[in-house]
């Protein structure tokens, strides 16, 4: 076989198996921080798979958004958690039937799906890429024309979510002294300084 066709296959299996193993390790790992680290590895392998499909833009976005921002916040939260494993395992028997049932249903569904689903004839995993148009240009051409409404709607939803999150955490306490830079800059010696002529022997009361 030609080296040019073997290399992508090797790369695919490398990234795919890394993604699967890391996804498994997310669940298995004992330390929650390690779990998040394996989750990051999973994201990263997924990004590598995107690159192999010719979707570099999606891959880099995945890295920037999920690995660079979302996972960092996960890590923040998990690092500050005080996880007690003894306490965590207390409810194990209680949740086992429900959890087992869910796992069973999911497995059956996956098996049914796997046995009945057929790829259409002449199916190709390659996304049709227009010649002469780079990945990001192709995105821009549809995102801001055909799907402009959905794009803007998504933006609005995110804005509402952001305002909601800010409203939830905003607490206006009375008596909190905040720094107002404009006030500080506008301050003159007149406002802050008072010269008092103290008479000898009397002092100030």
């Amino acid at each position: 076989m030609e080296l040019g066709t073997v290399l992508p296959a090797i790369a695919f299996y490398l990234f795919a198996s890394t993604a699967c193993i890391c996804a498994l390790m997310v669940v298995i790992a004992r330390s929650p921080v390690r779990s998040v680290l394996f989750l990051i590895m999973t994201f990263f392998s997924a990004a590598a798979l995107f690159v192999m499909l010719g979707a570099e833009f999606l891959a880099l976005l995945l890295v920037i958004v999920y690995v660079g921002a979302v996972a960092v916040l996960f890590l923040f939260v998990v690092m500050m958690l005080d996880v007690d494993f003894v306490e965590l395992k207390q409810g194990f028997a209680e949740y086992l039937p429900l959890g087992g049932l869910l796992a069973f249903v999911l497995t059956v569904e996956l098996i049914v799906l796997g046995t009945t689903f057929r790829l259409p004839e002449n199916f190709s995993a390659q996304v049709p890429i227009e010649q002469g148009v780079s990945n990001i240009e192709a995105f821009g051409l549809v995102l801001y024309t055909d799907f402009a409404f959905f794009f803007e709607a998504a933006g609005l939803i995110l804005l509402v979510a952001m305002i909601g999150a800010i409203m939830l955490t905003l607490n206006k306490k009375k008596g909190v002294k905040r720094q107002k830079v404009s006030d500080q800059v506008a301050r003159t010696p007149k406002d802050g300084l008072e010269l008092i002529d103290v008479k000898p022997g009397e002092g100030l009361s």
């Binding site: 680290l37 990051i40 570099e56 890295v63 920037i64 690995v67 660079g68 923040f76 690092m79 990001i136």
Partner: peptide
């Protein structure tokens, strides 16, 4: 790279991990 600038952004956002993991 055609997406060179985006690549730099992605890698620099990964640079945070060295710091946060080292500290933890």
């Amino acid at each position: 790279l055609n997406l060179g600038v985006l690549y730099i952004l992605a890698i620099s956002s990964l640079g945070v991990y060295g710091v946060i993991l080292g500290g933890w």
